[in-house]
Simulated scan of single mutants.
Amino acid sequence: MDLAAVILAGGTAARLDGADKASLEHAGATFLEHALAATGAAAEVVVVGDPVPTSRPVTFVREDPPLGGPVAGLVTGRGALARTPDAVVVLAVDMPFVTALTVRRLIEADGPDGAALVGPDGRRRLVLLLRTAALDAASPDDPHGASVGALLAGLDLADVTAEADEARGVDTWRDLRDLPR
């Protein structure tokens, strides 16, 4: 499968006092480096966020207008891809326990339109494998402020149950402090 990735790293991090989530560290690596390792199977990676040094080549972009939410970031990231892959891995940068194995499980569970990681609470996380044609068809004309739930509602996605801490995100300083080592 020809795969690209869009890493969403451009939010406000309001509950983290505006800290740059991509630069936060866990287990000796930044959250962005964890995300890049998880998306290693992707031939092309777009990071929607501010440019920072990375261990592999990526394209950095920002949505316009800025801070339009995850759907605006995803649509902007998809638009920045140099080519049209079969599928796009979508990953929020604040999920440091998502690994290449997580992505492989999404690929293997691939439903007609892709797959989504589901946390222990039964909710889908921003860890997705989306068929590019399905993503393009579902993307709203104006993605600014659009809901991820609305974007995914019309898609036939396989649900992949999170293992261990894969579904654990970091939204607050307490979340960061309480990450398992």
Rank of each mutant, 00 (worst) to 15 (best):
L3A: 10
A4N: 13
A4V: 13
T12V: 10
A13P: 02
A14S: 15
L16G: 06
D17H: 07
A19C: 07
A22T: 15
T30H: 03
T30V: 09
F31Q: 14
L32R: 03
E33Y: 03
A35P: 02
A37D: 13
A37F: 06
A43N: 08
V45L: 07
V46I: 15
V47R: 10
V48M: 01
V48G: 07
V48N: 05
R62K: 15
L67A: 13
A72F: 04
A72E: 13
T76F: 03
G79A: 09
G79Y: 07
A80Q: 05
A82W: 01
A82V: 12
R83C: 14
A87N: 14
A87K: 10
V88D: 00
L91T: 12
A92M: 10
V93N: 01
D94Q: 13
M95R: 15
T99L: 06
L101Q: 14
T102Y: 09
V103Q: 13
R104T: 07
R105L: 10
L106Q: 03
I107K: 04
E108C: 10
E108D: 15
A109K: 00
D110P: 06
D113R: 00
D113Q: 00
G114Y: 01
G114H: 06
V118K: 14
G119Q: 13
G119E: 10
P120G: 13
R123Y: 10
R124C: 07
V127A: 12
V127M: 04
A133T: 06
L135S: 00
L135F: 04
A137L: 09
A137S: 10
D142P: 04
P143H: 00
P143S: 04
G145A: 03
S147H: 02
S147K: 06
V148F: 10
V148M: 15
L155S: 05
L157W: 02
L157S: 04
L157Y: 00
D159M: 08
V160M: 04
T161F: 07
T161M: 11
A164E: 14
D165T: 11
D165S: 09
D165P: 07
R168D: 05
D171V: 04
D171E: 11
T172Q: 11
W173L: 08
R174K: 12
R174D: 09
D175G: 05
D175Y: 00
L179A: 09
P180Q: 14
